[in-house]
Computed example of a mutant assay.
Amino acid sequence: MQRICVIGGSRYFGRVLVERLQTAGHRVTVINRGSDGPPAGVDHLVVDRDDEAALLAALGSRTFDVVVDQVCYTPVQAAIAARAFAGRTRRYVMTSTIEVYDPATAVLPSVPAGTPVPEENVDPATWPVAMDLPWHDAAYREAHYAEGKRQAEAVLARAGGFAFAAVRSAHVLGGGVREFTGRLAHYTERIRAGEAITVHERPLPTVFIHHAELADLLLWAATAGDFTGPVNACSDGLLDVRGLAAAVAAEIGRDPVYRVVATGTPASPFSFDRQYAMSNTRAKGLGYAFSRTVDWLPGAVAETLTAATAPTAPTV
């Protein structure tokens, strides 16, 4: 049994992670602002992680074997966490994102189209940090999501006081009613209605991961792995927007309709006109075995279709 703290953990794969940790027999503490409580038997600290004094007061004398940070979006948040958990945990795992590799958001090493991107293309040990940017402004933070994640990784990687690992997640799908982004529902709804999906002239492939597989990988990174640095988390198999639409269409029984737009023009989710699909070679070398996207995608589509037709609870 390990003592594990999850920051966030109230929804989607974060909640699945908490459930997996609890089932595995670990002693789990969840820190969030209280919008959704954790499962019974999980210690719950209701506090705003951005309030350093309140966070320290809530933590008290608690120590942990591992911290899994699901909701770190800026270097300011990372710096607060680094100070709060220094000497309080031996390992810190941050959930990061494929978006750190998006060439539209930073000057990055170029990668040939179709070549999966390795972790070293964004090195948190050398990535510049700018704490004086308006990270507290929600609109700025949302517009600079990828850069916020890169800089958060950089702060935690250099913090010292604990071993640090960043799990860079591919685009997450599945979960039905748990899936809150609506990106897969965009496809199911439009294909079922015979409405056009907007795609680029030459869409490039990307990578995906099922929400339950990501929870399992985070469990592994927290409790079984002793690696440090970034690791990419994606199921096997590249897939472009037309392949995704075809998988959705196969479940619905209706051919997709496309509206083609030029490179540089906004399009439907997962239609990419630039290359940043990830490589999962490092995670495999460390011992993690991934599923194949083509194996779980039909089930994820079916979950989304079921969620769309489920009756809503009556209001009282």
Rank of each mutant, 00 (worst) to 15 (best):
C72G: 10
Y73K: 03
Y73C: 05
Y73E: 02
T74W: 06
P75E: 11
P75Y: 08
P75R: 07
P75A: 10
Q77K: 00
A78H: 06
A79R: 15
A79K: 14
I80E: 04
A81M: 15
A81T: 03
A81V: 02
A82L: 11
A82P: 11
R83F: 09
R83L: 14
A84S: 10
A86S: 14
R90I: 05
R91Y: 01
R91A: 01
Y92T: 02
V93H: 08
T95S: 14
S96A: 07
S96R: 02
T97I: 00
T97N: 09
I98A: 13
I98M: 14
E99S: 15
E99H: 13
E99N: 14
Y101D: 10
D102F: 06
P103Y: 10
P103Q: 14
P103E: 13
P103N: 11
P103R: 12
P103H: 12
L108E: 09
P109D: 08
S110E: 15
V111F: 07
P112G: 13
P112W: 13
A113G: 11
G114S: 05
T115C: 15
P116S: 09
P116D: 11
V117R: 03
P118K: 01
P118G: 01
E119N: 03
E119D: 03
E120P: 03
E120A: 14
V122W: 04
V122N: 02
V122G: 05
D123M: 06
D123L: 03
A125W: 09
A125L: 15
T126Q: 06
W127Q: 04
W127N: 09
W127M: 05
P128G: 11
P128W: 08
P128N: 07
V129W: 05
A130V: 12
M131I: 14
L133N: 02
P134E: 08
P134W: 06
W135F: 01
W135H: 02
A139T: 12
A139M: 07
R141L: 11
R141N: 10
E142Q: 15
H144A: 07
H144S: 03
A146N: 03
A146H: 02
E147R: 07
G148A: 00
G148V: 01
G148T: 00
G148I: 02
Q151V: 01
A152V: 06
E153C: 05
E153Y: 04
A154I: 04
V155L: 09
A157Y: 04
A157H: 14
A157E: 13
A159T: 08
G160A: 08
G160K: 08
G160I: 04
G161I: 01
F162A: 13
F162M: 14
F162W: 12
A163I: 13
F164K: 04
A165Y: 05
A165D: 08
